[in-house]
Amino acid sequence: MVELFFGYLAGAVVVLSLLVVFSRNAVHSVLWMLLMFLHMAGLYLLLNAEFLAATQVIVYAGAILVLFLFVIMLLNITEEMRLEQFTVGWPMGVSVSLGVLIAMLAALSGFRTDLKGPWSIEAVERTTHTKALGKVLYTEYMLPFEIASLVLLVAIVGAVYLAKKRLR
């Protein structure tokens, strides 16, 4: 049963990613991406990561994609659809990404999972997932967490500065 769900979600993710890359209309690309993120959230649910699934839907689908849609309104979609969508160097791009894919798939057999951490499914169930994540995030990863807030602050200031009109 789980395999069936995984098959559906994985197949949908792959097909939707291909549609994101190959659709001529940029708005359609973003909407396929939205569906892709929702299926990805389903995969996170299969992996017992409920909090991440919610974060995926809220942050990626709710915030980042809306930002993309806003910027796409700058483009002239009807003109864009008549133009060539790939650069002239596309065979190089195909070969490089295929080579990387083959290298990654060849390296996969090297993964070992016999070293287990302390958070088994039962342990996570006992503390609940969000609480367990919070415990690790706010103790072991306190400094990276603070730095992440700094990164977001820099991003806000940088985005406002870059996008504002130059005052003369």
Binding site: V20, F68, I72, L75, E80, E84, Q85, F86, T87, W90
Partner: peptide, 8 residues
């Protein structure tokens, strides 16, 4: 590597 549009 292949798309022309920066947003994509």
């Amino acid at each position: 590597l292949t798309k022309r549009n920066v947003i994509i």
